[in-house]
Amino acid sequence: MGDFLYEKDLRMMQYNILTSARHNGVAAAIAGHYGLKKQEVLRMMMERMDMILLENLPARYEVWQATGDAGDETERKLGCELISRYVPLADPQAIDRICADAKERIRKGTPKDEALSEGLQNIREMLRT
């Protein structure tokens, strides 16, 4: 692809946004939730989001903590709405599939912890690709 007239490498500026204390906290929390490295999460955010969304991540994360995934415990543990709507790193449909899958397995009798850890594993794989 040819060079755009006005396009510029913005990664340094995106990184500057993410260096603030609040953003760092959000990245660390998401990394902890899904068992990823913080640097990986930062890279994903920089690749998949525009700059205003990056700025708004702490507020969105707070909204999720307060009201997101409220109905269902499995969804809360997996952070379905967190990763697809509030911090949109992944495709909502794929996340819904993983979530439904985990719920189905719990219903069929798989121990809860096992199903949840497998769901988190699936989300982690999907985020990495």
Binding site: L10, M13, N16, I17, D50, M51, I52, E55
Partner: peptide
């Protein structure tokens, strides 16, 4: 999309 960095 909004691109920022002009007054950072």
């Amino acid at each position: 999309e909004v691109e920022l960095g002009y007054v950072k």
